[in-house]
Amino acid sequence: MSMSTGPSPLLEAAEAVRSGRVSSEELVTQALKRLEEVEGDVGAFLSVQGRAAVDTARSIDRKVAEGCKETLALPLLGVPMGVKDNLCTAGVPTTAASRILEGYRPSYDASAVSKLKLAGGIALGKTNMDEYGMGSTTETSAFQVTRNPRNIDHAPGGSSGGSAAAVAAGVVTGALGTDTGGSVRQPASWCGVVGLKPTYGRLSRKGLIAYASSTDCIGPIASSVADCAALLGAVAGEDRAGDSTALQQPVPDYTALLKESAASGGSRPLEGIKMGVIREALVERVQPDVAAAVKEAIDTMASLGAEVTEVSLPSLPEQCAAYYVTALSEASANLARFDGIRYGLHDQYEGDVYIQQ
């Protein structure tokens, strides 16, 4: 992974629309054509809003032609995007890949989706996922299985496998996913794209169908570090009215920081950065080609100036069990709202007598 800013398909597409070299409608039409070509094999999308996307693109093109300064300044100007199906989208099916929510059409956009649109991005469709985010292969969707576009005999990872596959297949240049215990980072890795789980609260969770609320995060998936940074910068930020846990700190200009780092660092932009490599993570249950790829990435980081240090996490084998204690207890509480069932024992108080049910 290089700290250079290119190639950056998302940013390049937005700049092409801004300069008039290509229209937003052309980008959307190309994305829909590519989707039609690969969707039968990949299965990345649960729904596609093609007509609405074209209409939005035409509106953007009109404003660009008029020289509207506000429109021309938008960072994601006219670029089609994927949105994971556990993020609410106004008037558009939002199922979290579950039959429980089949037919549900929210009356509002999730804050991250709203910011995506305000930044000029166009929601092309809702991407497949493991049901309610509970899975790591995108094979537990109630509607379809998503396959890895790099090799359709393999899984794309999960639970944001649809978003990662849509980017890897070249349908969209960026997509929103969600990460509770790896659900952005892992499918991005499996599909050979870039995924980031931001700091908790960096993005508002309003409109996100919850899994485990103490670790749920919305995160960007793109084909380059620069594009991931641009997408994160567009959708991050406070949300005082919608999510009290969203950070009320200014959002850095991640794109400018990347350019500054590339310009000042020369051939060694990671100089002064320390990177820990977990010893136990590369010892057991790791396929040789995966270990080789990780080693190559470590060597690349070192060549770019990073100080690589081996660290030990002896309790690593217990981490998964600890995660599930938290995640599944929170999930049971969150899922209870959908059908009225309550998990565990509940006490009712009647006068001087407690009745355990």
Rank of each mutant, 00 (worst) to 15 (best):
M275V: 15
E260H: 10
E70N: 09
L124R: 01
S224N: 07
G91W: 15
A188D: 04
G50A: 14
T89E: 04
E260D: 12
C228Q: 02
T199F: 15
N151H: 12
D352G: 03
D41N: 14
E15A: 09
R51L: 10
S213A: 15
L27M: 09
L345H: 10
L116M: 04
L328D: 05
G344H: 15
A31C: 08
S224R: 01
V54N: 03
S329I: 07
A175D: 02
S8V: 08
G272V: 07
R18E: 05
P80E: 06
E238Q: 13
S59L: 15
R34W: 06
H154P: 02
A90C: 08
R342K: 12
T245L: 12
L304F: 13
V42Y: 01
A262D: 10
A263I: 08
G157R: 00
A241R: 14
R105C: 14
L77A: 08
P198N: 09
D130A: 05
D227K: 00
I152G: 02
A321Y: 15
D253H: 06
D347A: 13
T326Q: 11
R202W: 04
S98G: 08
E350D: 12
P187M: 05
N128P: 15
S267D: 12
P269Q: 10
E296R: 14
A166V: 12
E330T: 06
D109H: 15
A164V: 04
P156T: 05
V64S: 00
G207F: 01
G305W: 04
T5R: 14
Y132R: 04
R18I: 09
A119C: 10
S47W: 04
P7H: 03
G103N: 09
V353N: 07
T89L: 03
Y104Q: 05
V172M: 03
A256P: 02
V145P: 01
Y323I: 06
L231R: 01
P198K: 13
R51W: 11
W190Y: 14
G133S: 06
N148F: 02
G82N: 02
A297V: 07
S8Q: 08
S47V: 08
Q319F: 13
E330C: 05
L316W: 03
S244T: 14
F338K: 11
V294L: 13
A236H: 00
A188L: 12
D130W: 00
S332G: 14
L270D: 00
E330P: 00
R337A: 14
G195A: 09
K69H: 09
C320M: 05
T326R: 10
A321G: 11
L116D: 00
A97K: 00
V353Q: 10
I273N: 02
A322N: 07
K84N: 06
G207M: 02
K126T: 06
A14G: 07
L77H: 02
